[in-house]
Amino acid sequence: MAKEFNVPPVMFPSGGNPSNIPQQRYRPTAPFQPNPNLPFISFDVPSTSFSAPVFGGNNGIGGMGFEDEPPLLEELGINTPQIWRKTKSILNPFRVNPNLHEDADLSGPFLFIVAFGLFQLLAGKFHFGIILGWVIVAAMFLYVVFNMLAGRNGNLDLYRCVSILGYCMLPMVILSAMSLFLPQGGMLIFGLAGIYVIWSTRVCTRLLVELASCGDEHRGLIAYACFLIYMLFSLLVIF
């Protein structure tokens, strides 16, 4: 049984376009005319020589002069006073201020890594790539170990981990600088290396435990991981 459908006829206007839509014509706008009221940069061009561009007053687009602009380092996010404060806090292994390291940055660590590489270069060892690679691997290792030990409450991120590890490289940098004036392979450099490694380990452990919560009961275990990392870096200096 076939059903029949009453389909209303569809009417198309002639030419394929509906006739009732008004034709809108495109009117080109006039070319751009500068507004004389706006304070643009004005160039006074004398007949003999050019003068420097004179910026407008403080009420317009060019309102800020070169004097009012922030320093380049600050604009790039490199806070030199803060880096200096963090460095000073690490120089005292017995009284570290963890609050300074709340705001992690990579500028200070990069500076220390470059300094470490330069001192190694002065000792005749080209270790830039090795140092950088080891720092990254060490940071990842410490990040995994710490967060696994802390369990579900582990809140240490990789960025902060690299920052802390890099700042605590400062004793290693001092050791590499001192090794330039010490006999290679002597007992004195071994003893100094041990002291500086313990210094780095103590500071790094303290910062990790204080900044990332839930690490207090694992202080010794985290300390051993840090100790291993800085001992490996000390091998580059000693031998």
Binding site: F141, M148, L228, L232, L235
Partner: peptide
């Protein structure tokens, strides 16, 4: 896995 990981790291350091 803590002891094996740390022992492995210590082995690398001591051998170095």
């Amino acid at each position: 896995l803590y002891i094996p990981l740390m022992a492995f790291g210590t082995y690398v350091f001591l051998t170095g």
